[in-house]
Design a protein around this nucleic acid. Sequence first.
DNA 1: GCCTTTGTTGTACATTTGGATAATTCAATA
DNA 2: TATTGAATTATCCAAATGTACAACAAAGGC
Lengths: 223, 223
Amino acid sequence: MPGDRRPYRRESEETRREALIEAALDLVAEGGAQAATVRAIADRAGVTPGLIRHYFASKDELTRAAYRRLMERMTADSGAALDTHGAGWTASERLAGFVAGSLRPPVVDPLRLGLWAGFLNAVRADAGMRAIHEQNYHAYRDRLEGLIADLPRWADAARCRADAIACNAVIDGLWLEGSALPEGFAPGELERIGLHTVSAILGLPLNPPNLPSSSPPPEGPAP
Amino acid sequence: MPGDRRPYRRESEETRREALIEAALDLVAEGGAQAATVRAIADRAGVTPGLIRHYFASKDELTRAAYRRLMERMTADSGAALDTHGAGWTASERLAGFVAGSLRPPVVDPLRLGLWAGFLNAVRADAGMRAIHEQNYHAYRDRLEGLIADLPRWADAARCRADAIACNAVIDGLWLEGSALPEGFAPGELERIGLHTVSAILGLPLNPPNLPSSSPPPEGPAP
DNA sequence: GCCTTTGTTGTACATTTGGATAATTCAATA
DNA sequence: TATTGAATTATCCAAATGTACAACAAAGGC
């Protein structure tokens, strides 16, 4: 039956690269690094294997692109609320928003954890992967340190750095916990624990900002 | 050259299983799950591939045995100081010893992290692996919760459980940080941050017990 | 000292799988 | 309509996978 040829469909380079990267990420998340074969990636992306090498010099290059995408997404998702609503927030609210954003979906997600674990060995083995990792990891921590430095309290640079390390560790730990045992925490519990603990580290009360979606403004009665 | 046959060496079942499990763990730690092939494991253990199936019904069973070993070791290593010197310690010292033990080598170790990541997907996919995981994970957290419940403070069971979850998360996070970036922390820094943060969560000062190896008794001047 | 038992070796098997690539087909654009 | 390059198909070749099995070597009972 030679008639079942895949319908020829022409797409932009942007779309194809996007689809391939997304397919690779999905597969690593679900089945680890060994699940992301060129055949599986092409299949998931809705193309044929040959096309991968048309857009990426090798499979390793696709892997690196996928990892870069993952890391960028982690930082971006954590600060998403800040970027959209944080203009008028106080420094304390901005930090709280960043912490809370790091501790709820989509950042906290079992698939993200699998993804992260699936890439871990490749990051250790491949120098290019390591470079991508370092760069994006520091971008996250620097952003956190900047938010801490803006707080209305007296603290020198060394203290800010130490606090950022501790807070980062707490956030990472809660992220790990929440992602590994999603049913182990009530909705919002992770964020509460995170904010409480960060408050304790900094010696400063930290209240989450009111998000438009989570709590409506008080002028209207509940329907 | 037919003379290079491996010298026949007969060992106890205990020794062989041990060697095979250890080899499997080493390989997963270094190169991820896909590096632990039957040939590589046999090679590392100093035997020939055929022997694996003499001691384990399948490769999966060896994998499960290796994962069980890893999990048991994590809890045991964390509480090693307690088990040897903790007899006369106060409840606060025992908790501090457990926290500190979880945040230094050999528990904190890049290879352990790689090991943990290498097993993550298998744990998600295989029901047997999942059972092993649950069992040992709860053993760790229950031990932590027990140490917290013994503290000289008033706290109901719910509070103890919540505190144990938060402390566990902090410990896991610092473990992750310290294992992923071993050069990012000064010696002992991780334990200090952990004790400080756990103290903040519990609202209780926590001092590390004097270990015979870490700080000598005060009767002798420093050489 | 033979003989059964069992740990151990070496190898072969059957299959799957890996990434890569050559040749071909098809749609869009000029 | 001619040209171009994205996309498909089929295949290559090698390497590696878990498993099975027959030959081999040492204990230990008798």
